[in-house]
Amino acid sequence: MKMTFLEAIKTGMDHEMKKNENVYILGEDVGPFGGCFGVTAGLFDKYGDKRVRDTPISEGAIVGCAVGSAATGLRPIAELMFGDFVTVAMDMIVNQAAKMRYMFGGKINLPLVIRMPIGAGVQASAQHSQSIEAWFTHVPGLKVVYPSTPEDALGLMMSSIEDDNPVIFFEHKLLYGMSTEVGDDIKPIPLGVAKVQREGTDVTVIATGKMVHNAIEASEKLAKEGISVEVIDPRTLYPLDKNTIFSSIEKTHKVLVITEEHKRGGYGGEISAMISEECFDDLDAPVVRVGALNVPMPYAPTLENVVIPNTQDIINGIKRMF
């Protein structure tokens, strides 16, 4: 069946809510309004205000509520309207959710999912466009999920809800409308397993979120020039499937890492460093990293385009290695 990315996330949540009455959604305007992007539309009618709960605009309390209820038997899904707003809730994620199991000697479960739309491309400018993966991959105790297709979004959402640890679930807002075929056999996709989105032999591109699609586009263009590109989507940034990445590099000996984050300090840097440390002997060229310009996201479309990495940047980066 064909499904949009947005419907896939909703379907994943719906399945888990059907299975387990302790799964509930909370967030700003997630009820009758259906969420700012429409991800929860229809769920309120199906499950009512107890399980699809509108909250005041209080991100700290939304995530805190998720933490407190997860610690006492529920499986909350907290929606933050935009990933950028998570700054207000960082204590609850970084100091509380991520660390409670460890500080308490493993004697507590925290099954909670925090969903947040991220990414640029809709002229939402500096406070509604950021890619903030590295803020969370840096914190022990969190799992970080970032799907790029409807099928993955669905299966990964189910696994995230079933996980007993806090999971940060990123959704690129430009992908919401993307529609592809999703297998009829709806089932969870385990966290920590990468997907080879396109097989190739000459160079490996590791891409996340919307950049996976740019990488595929670049690979199609380069195929015409005789360069065979393998595109890998880690799908979960932590736990990270190193084996799939390393196996590909053993084959291609060249790597480009592309993420939409600011290049400085991004998770792409972590992946590149890991490859340089652990696969140095397999490399024929230094790892190439592509990311956004290190400036706040500007508003004007012409300026925004300059900041976000694009398909041509990937092509240029790959050509540098040949």
Partner: peptide, 27 residues
Amino acid sequence: ADATKGILGANGIVGAGHNISVGAALS
């Protein structure tokens, strides 16, 4: 902390317990 006694933790962050208590009460 002692989950068997409903003790959801002492806390090193001033004010963090407020939010968590609301979650436990909601639960």
